[in-house]
């Protein structure tokens, strides 16, 4: 019943914001995967400073955003947390062909607010904790990477009963931050700015690189602001911000 209620609310919101987005030419609606939240905000600010155009950001899990896009949400640009959904958006006709590119390469970290808990893969092998938090692996690429890592280390079967899932990587982080889970796989970008707790940056050979692709959606095909934003995202200024937040870039790594 609740989901129906929110569906109805979503339709109303979509109906209201659709004409608004078409009216304001120098504004573009960007759907952003939750893990890229902070970096996207900074990039949008730099973008505005440089071009005067406004990038209105909406955050959610990649799966959730994709579902909304498939249902005609008024987004012009899609910054996903994987390369699958943007490719699918192109093949399903929601996005402009040939516009997809990798804007960031995500890294996962095993993290705890407890300064002594995480020492490396041994922490996972010991299983000396009650709950380990990950993002929902079926919808969030960071969650899938976490599962891949645990499988690569051969600890997944042992740890499975201890896994709790956040709806997206932001919630997985929240579970650790509030102490409800002692540790969890989070995005390096989420903790790049602080040095609290203990962490283990997962070696990239344990999971498939999380290529985060951006794509121009059909709704943004005629939008100069949407295209300008994507160009800006490829440029060196955005690249510096992206790396600062703990991501690799296609050019940089």
């Amino acid at each position: 019943m609740m989901s129906l209620r929110s569906l109805a609310a979503g339709l109303v919101v979509a109906a209201i914001s659709l004409p608004a987005s078409m009216a304001a030419a120098a504004e573009t609606n960007v759907a952003v995967a939750a893990n890229f939240t902070e970096a996207a905000k900074e990039i949008a600010a730099a973008f505005k400073e440089k071009t005067g155009d406004e990038a209105a950001l909406s955050f959610g899990s990649t799966g959730q955003l994709y579902t909304q896009i498939s249902q005609d949400a008024p987004f012009e640009v899609f910054l996903a947390a994987d390369d699958e959904r943007p490719a699918k958006a192109v093949s399903e006709g929601y996005a402009v062909e040939g516009s997809a590119f990798t804007y960031a390469i995500g890294k996962i970290v095993l993290w705890s607010t407890d300064a002594d808990l995480v020492s490396g893969e041994d922490t996972l092998r010991s299983g000396d904790f009650n709950k380990i938090s990950i993002a929902n692996p079926t919808t969030a690429p960071y969650g899938a990477a976490a599962v891949e890592t645990m499988k690569a280390l051969g600890v997944y079967d042992d740890l499975e009963p201890k896994i709790v899932q956040g709806n997206n990587i932001a919630q997985a982080f929240q579970f650790v931050q509030t102490g409800n889970a002692e540790l969890g796989f989070v995005a390096l970008s989420q903790i790049a700015a602080n040095s609290e707790g203990s962490r283990w940056e997962v070696p990239v050979d344990l999971y498939t690189p999380i290529k985060q692709d951006a794509v121009l959606l059909k709704k943004g095909e005629e939008s100069a602001a949407a295209k300008a934003f994507l160009d800006f995202l490829k440029g060196p200024e955005a690249g510096a911000i992206i790396e600062k937040y703990g991501y690799g870039t296609a050019a940089g790594s």
């Binding site: 989901s3 929902n136 079926t138 919808t139 709790v164 956040g166």
Partner: peptide, 20 residues
């Protein structure tokens, strides 16, 4: 925390299905 059999109730299951 979306744990099957413990906390994954119907409304969350529906949400998961829609998202995937």
């Amino acid at each position: 925390g979306n744990i099957p059999g413990e906390t994954k109730v119907l409304s969350v299951a529906i949400y998961d299905y829609v998202e995937t």
